[in-house]
Design a protein around this nucleic acid. Structure first.
Length: 419
RNA sequence: GGGGGAGUGUCCCGAGCGGCAAAGGGGGCGGACUGUAAAUCCGCUGGCUAAGCCUUCGUAGGUUCGAGUCCUACCUCCCCCA
């Protein structure tokens, strides 16, 4: 849809060139504001998990590019809206989260932004407000009279997020039905407080965003704008941000840097170029060169993707460590000290630690039953030797420099280190 | 308010004459082949102190040697009538 549009602003130029743009309410109008250097834009983040995962990365990068091209980014914490729950793109209602959980999640999520945005009091410094600040104290009657009267239920029913639920005869509670009203109100509130005129989000947010623009018009704000990024899936259709082991968390305590690096390293060939554009800041001509690599050579491009993407989230030093550990492990067959590790008391090794227990402790398998099955399938290795006997015991002589390497399959490795 | 139907393995969908740890998919994991890719083929896919034991079929009771299956009540959802 954007192929015939030539943006003049740095911000939109980047978005178009790098594939961040899916839909926009008014490209030309937004381009003018972005060019003037006064663009303030926000993206909302639900506080439904203790950290963000790779699925949110596109939104985070959007905010980062906004700041780099002269705009002011707002990462809105949904401390208030999360108490309600967004029905968009979900089949069924999500369980309501306790307030303490939401607060804890919010703290975890805020941490993620430190690496991507620069904060402060300046004109272009990023801010992280929480919509609970204005939503939590709303008076129901006042809200209905001042804001509610501007919403058309007829129109709300026609939005995909609602329509899909209705068509499938799936429950949509009144609580969830109100979510979009609150999100729309956020937009107006952020305009009033910070002069924010653009809301960005994933393509599933389009309806909610447009509703906000609409509310703004009725409540007398300036013209507001909306922009969505494409919903990211891998070439084979898998949802981004979820991997075999679960979500690809951006927090090191929830996913070791090594595993994060591996996630990108193992992307499908077809996705390499697209991901380089979205998740790294390498120049486009460099990306074009990497993308053109064919056959096994594409692996070089994937390593660069992994290192750059990991550096963005965890810092370059940690990313290079992960890259080094991968090289030692996969290419040199050596024992890399910086693989993910789990501490085991020396006494337990002295006494002899059963393989089954050891693998459960490492987190590579969920239960001794699974460990047993993996052994039957030839999937477990200790120090690169396949485990064939489930009664095998790990003792002091299996240690190399105080470390035992446990592997599940060819790709997942964890070191047991003497504590 | 009346009548009918449905809730199954804590990822999902889904079969299930009273002997069921419960068919079959999808997804996922492992193996083979490769390039740490894709595609393909094969195996696995409740827990445990493991030839045994324990916990699972909406919830709570009941009948039975034995219940996912039969009975009762309750919860939730869908359809038809008013």
């Amino acid at each position: 849809m954007t192929s015939d549009f030539r943006p003049q602003s740095g911000f939109l130029t980047v978005l178009v060139e790098r594939g961040f743009l899916h839909q926009c309410s008014d490209l030309a109008g937004l381009d003018q504001i972005a060019k003037s250097g006064d663009l303030v834009a926000y993206t909302g983040f639900d506080c439904t998990a203790p950290s963000l995962h790779a699925g949110s990365l596109v939104q985070i990068m959007l905010l980062r590019w906004l700041q780099k091209t002269g705009g002011k980014p707002i990462a809105l914490m949904g401390g208030g809206t999360t108490r309600v729950g967004d029905p968009s793109g979900k089949d069924a209602s999500r369980q309501l989260l306790p307030l303490e959980t939401i607060a804890a999640n919010k703290d975890g999520i805020k941490n993620v932004f430190a690496r991507f945005l620069s904060f402060g009091e300046g004109k272009r410094d990023a801010i992280i407000p929480d919509n609970a600040d204005w939503l939590a104290t709303l008076n129901y009657i006042d809200f209905l009279r001042d804001v509610g009267r501007h919403f058309s239920v007829n129109r709300m029913l026609s939005l995909d997020s609602v329509k899909l639920r209705l068509e499938r005869d799936q429950e949509l509670s009144f609580l969830e039905f109100n979510y979009m009203c609150l999100q729309a109100y956020d937009f107006v509130e952020l305009f009033k407080r910070h002069g924010c005129v653009l809301q960005m989000g994933g393509s599933d947010q389009w309806g909610n965003i447009v509703t906000g623009i609409d509310l703004g018009r009725r409540m007398g704000t300036r013209q507001l704008y909306g922009l969505t990024s494409p919903l990211l899936t891998s070439s084979s259709g898998a949802k981004m941000g979820k991997s075999a082991q679960g979500a690809v968390w951006l927090d090191e305590s929830m996913l070791p840097v090594f595993d994060y690096w591996q996630y990108w390293r193992n992307c499908e060939d077809q996705d390499t170029g697209r991901f380089l554009k979205l998740f790294t800041e390498l120049p486009l001509d460099e990306i074009a060169r990497l993308e053109a690599l064919g056959g096994a050579e594409i692996n070089e491009a994937k390593k660069i993707l992994a290192t750059e993407a990991a550096a963005m989230v965890h810092g370059r030093e940690a990313a290079l460590r992960a890259a080094g550990a991968a090289r030692q492990t996969f290419e040199e067959g050596a024992l890399a000290e910086s693989l993910p590790s789990v501490k085991i008391p020396a006494a337990e090794i002295e006494a002899g630690l059963g393989v089954l227990t050891a693998f459960v402790r490492s987190g590579l398998v969920a239960s001794t039953g699974e460990a047993r099955r993996q052994i039957i399938g030839g999937g477990l290795k200790i120090n690169d030797r396949t485990v064939t006997d489930e009664r095998m015991v790990i003792g002091p002589r299996d240690l190399t420099g105080g470390v035992v390497k446990l592997s599940l399959g060819r790709k997942r490795h964890v070191l047991l280190k003497i504590a």
